[in-house]
Design a protein around this nucleic acid. Structure first.
Lengths: 146, 146
DNA sequence: AAAATAAACGCAACTTAATTGCGTTATTTT
DNA sequence: AAAATAACGCAATTAAGTTGCGTTTATTTT
């Protein structure tokens, strides 16, 4: 479960720690990620002032990712979805997400399964490994019940 | 490893069983899936006559998916990638993929990693699990060296 | 604190994957 | 073999994501 925090000062601090400029929008954006498991550009758009440009959203997400704040999570509907990084797992230089991801085939939300790790495969002869993913698909509680 | 079958009659039969019209292109398309772990529209295009329209490819894939022949597999580059379903008609060697899959980000070939199994997760509270995949991405030997 | 530097922003135009409508052709059903 | 149904090709469109550039805002330096 995510930690909810209404105090903007804390978010500004997190941004500063990661070397991300603390603009009004980027504080707001980080706030959104603390409220929701994963977000797409469209979902961010719907939760932001309609004065904010979509390019700004794309660039902010790109910056957050480069600075190790968020990471791309697998999705099945070919729309890029981001999720908060685990503070001790990730750094600007290296994203390390060895936890599983659950994709709901109905609402398309992606959930990080922190307790389910993918096997720790370091090296396979003949392959240069960039990423390793444990992906589960099905229905989340809300979609399964309804 | 996929079983290669040059006899069109068998593919026509599989199509018929799934209620898919057996046109020349659709037989060819099914053929492609028996040769390759996963395919994108672009890859299908490159392996088909250039007389075939891209809309035909999109619609054939859509139809195959609706009829339970293929399914969308997660990809990292937000381009839809399909893979054969675990159908009853097919041999045991072809399916039951509890082993990992390696996707080369350069040549897009996929490799079965028979020796690397995905963890045996049966149940997670709050989720109804349909499928579980262990996906590795990076570069295969040929693409890494060149 | 002001000036200099760097990063973020908005706009418009662009690229590319994927979709839709419609008339035509091929396949399936009877 | 005719009627019904599904696939096909073409052209136009939608939508996600990207790029260039001039302007504004934030950060760093003096």
């Amino acid at each position: 479960m995510k930690i909810k925090n209404d105090n903007n000062l804390d978010f500004a601090l997190i941004l500063a720690k990661h070397g991300v400029s603390k603009t009004k929008f980027r504080i707001h954006l980080l706030n959104l990620f603390y409220d929701k498991e994963s977000l797409t550009v469209k979902e961010v758009m719907n939760k932001s002032s309609n004065l904010i440009n979509k390019v700004t959203i794309y660039r902010a997400l790109e910056s957050f990712e480069e600075k190790g704040l968020i990471h791309i999570v697998p999705s099945s509907n070919n729309i890029i979805r981001y999720s908060l990084c685990n503070a001790d797992e990730c750094s600007a230089s290296l994203h390390k997400h060895n936890h599983g991801h659950f994709i709901c085939n109905n609402c398309n939300q992606t959930f990080c399964l922190e307790n389910y790790k993918s096997p720790d495969i370091k090296l396979i002869e003949g392959f240069y490994i960039n990423s390793l993913k444990l992906i589960l698909e099905g229905y989340c509680k809300d979609c399964y019940l309804n």
